[in-house]
Write a protein that binds this DNA or RNA. Structure first.
Lengths: 348, 348
DNA sequence: TTGAAAGCGCTAACAT
DNA sequence: ATGTTAGCGCTTTCAA
């Protein structure tokens, strides 16, 4: 077996030797701790640079009994979580922690994603997509501080950061009511805590505003919007305002309607959910209930860090943020007169 | 400072003690190595389970001088790379490695993403989105085996796995030619290695097929498609076939056209690039040149692992895969007669 | 301001 | 089949 042609990774020892100082001195310099003389500092830094030295985070964390690592488990298939990742990096960095990602993908369960995080011994875990029941989450939380984003976990005191569904629906339906709409339809997200909360919030807000509320079953896919549109077209029963589960479904629904000659927002107003990159694209231009990703991420990291730094702290319960409504081009005043969709293509 | 109320993480030592065996025996059992008796095995496993033991990957890798970690640097803003991640997890797992992700996001440069990976001491780095020049990549490769996905790096022998742009454009333009199109337009992706390769491939394929080729400047955003469509509409100069840079741009372009009363594919055929989840959505139903994500990921992991296991191996150059054309609903036979787009909305 | 020594959790080579 | 010992790269007392 031949020797590695590649120069083996430089270690602190090498840097110290090369600079002619002890390892501990070199260590202090590298971590920018006070102590070493300016001259020693310079020599060490020079050597480190010359050798391309980079501290080994494993050894480092092993020695200090802390990883300063925040684990984040997310699902590649949920665009909203991708947005969240961006905010988490920023917040973690600001708090002096590193973020380590573990993805849930088809073929890699939440189970595995979380197990990996535990293997890294991250100081806390932030779960963006947990479908786990309360008990499992609580058990996990007894091993490492856990913060959930987005999802309510009833009957527990787990750390949760989420956006108020009730407030979101109040904003959305309030906007529609103001535009003169009297009947609203929600295409829901199927089963799961968030869809169910959102559904309930929809009903509650409609009742409070005196709007007639209808709910149609859907799921978390874009297809659900597409199918709902076709169902409505087939039934010839098209409400003046629709709130699909999220932006993806809303976009698909709009597309189906547009192709069928139903005009948005002239005939039907549509409000999405998540204010995702998709909704922001100018050709989509979707009115949407936005979660404040930045704030969500900051709060989650804040909670995590708090529990890491004071390990006596128990889980702190929910932080509920307010959403905002971003009014774009898919909502408008209700038009009198009936809708006469044309089947088939939309051009004369 | 109070004591941690949380039971401190169980260590191998604890498991061994609890099972009444030595650490090395416990280690063998945990790693499922031959040696320990069935009875000892059982005792250790039981203790491990009871204590919720999970090996510390840091300590493990430190001891074996290998992390069995494949680092992947990607960009959250590029949907194609998200798809790739899924494939990489699968391939890495199959090869007995773990995948560790490091994202490039607005506010976190490629620089930092890669530095983090080096800190983890991953055995090899797979770069999905490198914009680095050849020299920097070569220098990095001298520290740790590097495999690039997607991007050609001229004049080097770096490990690269990519899809042939030439073949992709041949497929796309061949399909269009067969449908009777005589003139094709490419909205390009601006500057960068991939856009430039793709542009050149477009021109080459058009020439070979005897098609009139036009190229319009764009960039890597969806907006570029939207804007291109409006430019064409304004100029009243709409070709019968268009190949935007990627699916996102294609979708935006189609949307702009549809709203203006230009029918797809009746008036204009459109082919996207990437066969992304977006293009697969039934309401988008976009004919698209697909890169084989699974194959791309497998090859990249294969190359990485090869160089990890035989560290004498030099970088192995390019692997170029063949794309395929997924024909969906946005391409059709060229129609005789001129296109008369209606400005404004699409319904009578 | 600097150095020596112990230890973080684990594996590996070598006893027994 | 099982235990002992040294060491992975780093930080951290503690002494000099």
């Amino acid at each position: 077996m031949g020797r590695d042609p590649r120069q083996s990774e430089a270690r602190l020892k090498d840097v110290a030797a090369s600079a002619g100082v002890s390892r501990s001195l070199a260590s202090l310099v590298i971590r920018n701790e006070p102590g070493p003389s300016a001259e020693a500092r310079e020599r060490v830094l020079e050597a480190a640079h010359r050798l391309g030295y980079r501290p080994d985070t494993r050894a480092q964390s092993l020695a200090v009994l802390r990883t300063r690592l925040l684990g984040a488990a997310f699902d590649t298939r949920r665009p909203f979580q991708i947005d969240l990742i961006e905010g988490l990096y920023e917040a973690a960095t600001a708090a002096g922690y590193e973020l380590v990602l573990s993805a849930q993908v088809p073929g890699r369960s939440e189970e595995e994603a979380i197990a990996t995080l535990l293997g890294y011994r991250c100081d806390a875990a932030i779960l963006l997509s947990s479908g786990w029941p309360a008990e499992r989450l609580e058990e996990l939380d007894s091993r490492v501080p856990v913060v959930l984003i987005g999802r309510r976990v009833p009957k527990t005191n787990l750390d949760v950061v989420r956006t108020s569904e009730a407030a979101g629906m109040r904003l959305a339906l309030g906007h529609l009511a103001q535009l003169g709409h009297r009947e609203v339809l929600h295409i829901d997200g199927g089963s799961g805590q968030i869809p169910s909360d959102r559904r309930r919030a929809f009903r509650g807000a409609a009742r409070a505003l005196g709007l007639a509320a209808r709910v149609q079953r859907g799921d978390r896919t874009a297809e659900a919007g597409w199918e709902a549109a076709h169902r409505l077209l087939a039934a010839g029963d098209i409400p003046t305002a629709i709130i699909p589960y999220h932006d993806m479904a809303a976009t698909a629904l709009i597309d189906a309607f547009t192709r069928a000659g139903v005009r948005i927002p002239d005939d039907v107003s549509v409000i999405g959910y998540d204010n995702s990159q998709l909704s922001q694209m100018s050709h989509v231009n979707l009115t949407s209930v936005g979660q404040d990703v930045h704030h969500l991420a900051t709060q989650a990291v804040g909670k995590a860090v708090q529990r890491v730094e004071d390990r006596n702290l128990p889980a702190g319960g929910e932080v509920v943020l307010s959403p905002s409504l971003i009014v774009r081009g898919t909502t408008g005043p209700v038009r009198s007169g009936s809708i006469a969709p044309k089947p088939g293509r939309s051009v004369p």
